[in-house]
């Protein structure tokens, strides 16, 4: 079936099966930041933005994205690099496999709530699993970024 959508600001038309999942479509389009960590919508690794809202691309049919604007980490490099550097300074990226999903959701969080409390950060990112870091370093990184931004602003 024919699918037309906007992917990272670029118009894309492609032929997909009715049961193609958005995650598989995106990876086939070269958006390899999108990772699969489970098959049950539990891990958050495949998080992308649909019209600016985070969705789990493993649980969305590609055709559901027809006419919508999908953003993956490939399309948000600068926005992400801004705060990701602070997470890197904590060593909290670790294996990195969960990072794209977690970073995408953090982009969404910071757009929605530019000055979140620690508890708001934890709650917003609760669906993004990480097995390496124990989460605390990710929080320290985001907190350091927010503090830095305040100091700057």
């Amino acid at each position: 079936m024919e699918l037309k959508l906007t992917l990272n600001g670029r118009a894309v038309a492609a032929s997909v099966e009715a049961d193609t999942l958005l995650i598989d479509f995106l990876r086939a389009q070269g958006c390899l930041s999108v990772k699969r960590g489970c098959e049950t919508a539990n891990c958050g690794l495949c998080t992308v933005l649909m019209d600016g809202t985070p969705v789990l691309s493993c649980s969305v049919l590609a055709l559901r994205a027809a006419g919508h604007h999908i953003q993956t980490l490939e399309g948000l490099q600068e926005e992400a690099a801004d705060f990701a550097a602070f997470i890197a300074d904590q060593g909290a990226e670790q294996c990195g496999f969960c990072n794209p999903g977690f970073v995408m959701n953090t982009v969404a969080l910071l757009r929605e709530n530019p000055d979140p409390t620690d508890d708001e950060i934890r709650a917003y990112l609760a669906g993004n699993l990480c097995r390496c870091s124990g989460y605390e370093g990710q929080l320290r990184g985001i907190r350091a970024y927010l503090d830095h931004k305040k100091g700057r602003g």
Binding site: A28, L32, S33, V34, K35, T72, L73, E74, Q77, A80, A81, A84, A85, I87, A88, D89, G91, E93, C95, G96, F97, N99, P100, V103
Partner: peptide, 24 residues
């Protein structure tokens, strides 16, 4: 506390894992 050499590549979702780098 040196930053990991691959930290930014990992955080920015670069294609560095097995299924990202092999022929599809």
């Amino acid at each position: 506390p040196v930053r990991k050499k691959d930290a930014m590549a990992l955080l920015l979702g670069k294609p560095v894992y097995m299924d990202d780098i092999v022929p599809q």
